[in-house]
Nucleic acid binder design. Structure first.
Lengths: 239, 239
DNA sequence: TGTACATCAGTGAACGCGCGTTCACTGATGTAC
DNA sequence: TGTACATCAGTGAACGCGCGTTCACTGATGTAC
């Protein structure tokens, strides 16, 4: 049981990754529901049955694909936040995460569609995908709550909304509390607004990538900048 | 050339519609990219080649599906607006359209995924789908612009955003002008905000239907009510 | 009203293709003594 | 260091299946005189 890997183990890891990469490339032409194991095998230069040594079925390959894409996006978003030197520049951190999320999405449109487009009929993502899937929103919430705890915010829009915010997003509020931000009077409002903003960001990316803004938006970069700036204002981050 | 239809013509229309309905039902199990003409034919009780008398190819059937679904959603949204007696109750009209849009989406999740989920690889929607696709946003813009022209609004959030709004959504602003609402000082801001709100609504529906709010939102009805109420406030509609 | 012809819906066979998965096999790599 | 055995990656054939589309056909419906 040596600490260094045997040639076999190294080869196995390489080829496992190679198959995954080939499958991701395939998504450009087929969509996850029509992803063909045989086509992937051909691209890798194997016979189709050989793929079963690495992924026990088509669905397991799909799961690996989801996790890889979620992790890559989460990684990009977190790295962008971490690269902001002034940790108290919450607006800068917010903007960095949003911009990085969009940049990854534009360069990986098929991965984006896998993650945020239509679910694959007959496929239910297993529990292992949950962690990777939450990385972006967790980071966004972290930034916004930090800003409010530092007091570096304008008051959020008065709650003219129907009562019952606490109930609507109870799960998320609980989550934020656990995140280690004990008490803040506006926590329900802040949480609701952050989830809304997150939804708007991905709604914007879906609309952009899936073609629904054709005829409305003329400059996508500028439009996205407008959106995240308004969202930041709605969240109480001062300009 | 009689004004009344022949039996053949009537039968043709019925069966064309029946095939379309069967295809929509199929979407529950397969997704548009894997939609099978043969399966549709079986459901209708025909031999697969007979479908070609009605739709010249699989892609034409897809197009018909898109148009039918967009029109049904547009119809539902417009009917909800039209049913509001007090035409000056802009908040009521806004809410009615949003609620109707969500109601249709929840009862037609597979049609929703067809319209707002991942595009079908290799399929480009033809021009005929554009009109039906814009019915909801056109109605939303109409309501918001009417509210601002009637002066029944709070001022919209001050434009703390980066300059250049006009350029980002130039196409939409032009469209609103053509809609017959000549001048309003805040037109660029109002237009941007309305497109953002539209994006948020469909982003919310996509997240709800595609499972991204599991673990965050505990009461979807209540959450949606919160969302559209905040959006209305952001758009200057008074409560 | 009746007949002759034209139109068209639906049939069934066929074309050429791709799919996921199983299985017995071979040959190379790794392990224990 | 050398040998015997175990592990495992990759092969190739096969199973049973479904797909979109074409084509010559039949029989019913519609039209013109």
């Amino acid at each position: 049981m040596p600490a260094s890997k045997t040639a076999r183990q190294r080869a196995r890891e390489d080829i496992t990754a190679e198959i995954l990469a080939a499958a991701r490339a395939r998504l450009a032409e087929a969509g996850p529901g029509e992803l063909s194991l045989r086509a992937v095998a051909r691209d890798v230069g194997m016979v189709s049955s050989a793929v079963y040594r690495y992924y026990p079925s088509r669905n397991d390959l799909l799961t690996a694909l989801l996790i890889a894409a979620y992790d890559e996006l989460g990684e990009a978003a977190e790295a962008a936040d971490d690269a902001v030197d002034d940790r108290d520049d919450h607006l800068g951190r917010w903007t960095a995460v949003c911009v990085a999320t969009r940049a990854w999405s534009l360069t990986h449109p098929y991965d984006y569609a896998l993650l945020y487009g239509s679910p694959v009929p007959g496929y239910a993502a297993p529990q292992d995908t949950v962690g990777p899937a939450t990385r972006v929103i967790v980071r966004l919430v972290t930034i916004i709550v930090a800003a409010h705890q530092a007091g570096a915010t304008s008051p959020v829009a008065p709650s003219i909304a129907p009562a019952g915010v606490e109930d609507a997003v109870a799960d998320a509020i609980e989550f934020v509390r656990v995140l280690g931000n004990p008490e803040h009077a506006d926590l329900p409002e802040i949480t609701t607004r952050t989830i809304m903003a997150w939804t708007t960001i991905f709604g914007t990316l879906s609309f952009e990538l899936f073609g629904h803004l054709v005829g409305s938006v003329s400059d996508y970069d500028a439009y996205f900048a407008q959106v995240i700036s308004r969202l930041a204002a709605d969240l109480g981050l001062p300009a």
